[in-house]
Computed example of a mutant assay.
Amino acid sequence: MLLVTSIIASVLTIIFIKLSFAVIGLRRKNKVGLGSGGYEDLERAIRAQGNFAEYVPFGIILIACLELNGAPWWLVAIPGVALIIGRLIHAKGINVPPPDFSKRILGMKFTFNTLIALVVLNLVWSLYLLFVLEGK
């Protein structure tokens, strides 16, 4: 079962929906059907949504792999919470005019460090299962 992954993916999806509604609202307000129409606030909203969509799937996949391979729930939950925090900070930093680059940078640091940690956790956990547990 993917109980922890389900919770994390659900929270991340709620954030994505909120970012998407922000884009839709600004498109309607500015009467722009495609692109940003030169509106800076719409461009920021589009990039916040796009950036979220670019990074989150990798995190969810790695979190699910970790959980499917039997890692303890807390080892799955900690990077999941870190990914949520990183994405929220980044979205806040990019969407608030003028863009708060310190928040964007902090959000990306959280995101990249979480993805790197998930890669390491998956490799170490998988190798542990393969060589230590399978070797018995």
Rank of each mutant, 00 (worst) to 15 (best):
M1K: 12
L3F: 13
T5E: 01
T5P: 02
S6N: 14
I8D: 08
I8H: 11
S10E: 06
S10A: 15
V11C: 10
V11P: 00
L12I: 07
F16S: 14
I17G: 02
K18A: 15
K18Q: 10
K18V: 15
L19V: 02
S20K: 09
F21P: 00
V23H: 09
I24K: 01
G25C: 02
L26I: 09
L26C: 03
K29L: 11
N30C: 02
V32D: 07
G33I: 04
G35H: 00
G35D: 07
G37L: 01
Y39C: 05
Y39I: 05
Y39D: 08
E40D: 12
D41H: 03
D41W: 01
L42R: 07
E43Q: 09
R44C: 10
R44I: 09
A45P: 06
I46Q: 10
I46F: 04
G50D: 06
F52M: 08
F52G: 03
A53F: 10
E54M: 04
Y55N: 14
V56Q: 08
P57Y: 12
P57Q: 13
F58Y: 12
G59H: 11
I60L: 15
I61E: 07
L62P: 03
A64H: 07
C65D: 01
L66V: 06
L66N: 02
E67K: 09
E67N: 09
N69A: 11
G70L: 04
G70W: 01
A71M: 01
A71L: 01
W73A: 14
L75N: 04
V76E: 01
A77F: 10
I78Q: 00
I78R: 00
G80M: 04
A82M: 14
L83T: 10
I84F: 14
I85S: 06
R87H: 05
I89W: 04
I89H: 00
H90T: 06
H90E: 02
G93N: 04
V96F: 07
V96Y: 09
V96H: 13
V96N: 14
P98Q: 05
D100R: 10
S102G: 03
S102L: 11
K103W: 13
K103H: 14
R104H: 07
I105Q: 13
K109E: 09
F110R: 05
F112S: 03
N113Q: 14
T114Q: 01
L115F: 14
I116A: 09
I116S: 06
A117S: 13
L121Q: 05
L123D: 05
V124M: 09
W125K: 01
L127H: 07
Y128M: 06
Y128W: 11
L129D: 03
L130W: 15
L130Y: 15
F131C: 07
V132Q: 00
L133M: 07
E134D: 07
E134S: 14
K136M: 15
K136F: 15
